[in-house]
Nucleic acid binder design. Sequence first.
DNA 1: GAACTTATGTCGGTGC
DNA 2: GCACCGACATAAGTTC
Lengths: 101, 101, 101, 101
Amino acid sequence: MSGIGHNSGSEDDTFAVSDEQLGAANVSAEELRLLIERIERLEEEKKGIADDIKDVYSEGKAKGYDTKTMRKIIALRKMDADARREMEAILETYLAALGMD
Amino acid sequence: MSGIGHNSGSEDDTFAVSDEQLGAANVSAEELRLLIERIERLEEEKKGIADDIKDVYSEGKAKGYDTKTMRKIIALRKMDADARREMEAILETYLAALGMD
Amino acid sequence: MSGIGHNSGSEDDTFAVSDEQLGAANVSAEELRLLIERIERLEEEKKGIADDIKDVYSEGKAKGYDTKTMRKIIALRKMDADARREMEAILETYLAALGMD
Amino acid sequence: MSGIGHNSGSEDDTFAVSDEQLGAANVSAEELRLLIERIERLEEEKKGIADDIKDVYSEGKAKGYDTKTMRKIIALRKMDADARREMEAILETYLAALGMD
DNA sequence: GAACTTATGTCGGTGC
DNA sequence: GCACCGACATAAGTTC
């Protein structure tokens, strides 16, 4: 956790102004701004990775594989992985239901 | 293991695959596998970041902001940023047209 | 046939609306209304089936199965079915790539 | 008889499964299977109707209406219907409160 | 027009 | 016991 903020609910009057609500609003605005900027940074990172993925597909295409096939393979492998995870989850559910967890 | 089109030993080899082709296929398979694994790794990273984003939204929610509003703000800021980029692009175009680039 | 705005046959009556135009508009309105009512009927049917599904889950619950488990099982079976379909699709893709389709 | 988790009367045979329990399990498994198959059938029907809806939208599109508009109209009509129902509910409440139901 | 992302609605769980 | 909340499934929109 980042440790940013942690001031929700506190009535900190360090920067007290005549209008308490305005002060609170400023704190909130700052808090909100920080949250939003964090999200924006993360979105950028995500975009960057999405671009990298695109590049790898392009590379594959350049090497003669068609994108559709590559996507199919990846989807299939993902399905397998998901199914495995799902089976483990269901097993746990059963065990829990049987009081064996 | 039943590879697609693996057909060794047939005589009337309408669909025969030569050793050369098999060798090439193996190389290709390896090459393809590497591409796919790279993509899968990148997909995982992307997923991780998407989860981080979700966490930040949750954090915002916990601090009393509603998600919908946050999303709207981010969308707006993104539009602003896009508009700015667009304007810069236009400016560059003008400058280029004027031979001032 | 095109929808609203079909304008052939008017002579010089700049703002006049011919009977033909009214007729066309009416036809369009009617046509649109019918499409919309079909969708609404289908949405109702869909809702009805969704309710039926809910009932079956309730029935299962009443018989001592927990919903989560049931959902997990169904999801898993769906995954299997999807994976099978997907594998067939990929097989076709390969065969096509090999000119064997 | 209930399914998984029915555990009354066992003393220290923590993981023991009696013949009775196995028999019950078989019955349960069959029972569960039937429930699941019913749900799967219903899900398929639901999917079929969803596809039909898609088709009607496509048909509308082909006739020159845009999907977005159609969706808006349907949403509006749904709101109207919901509002009407709501008003009727309120009316009933009033009537009931007045002992006129 | 297909795939990916975003948004909305629904469902089950949980805390008061 | 009900209402809130988070999670999941579906639907809509957007982009390539």
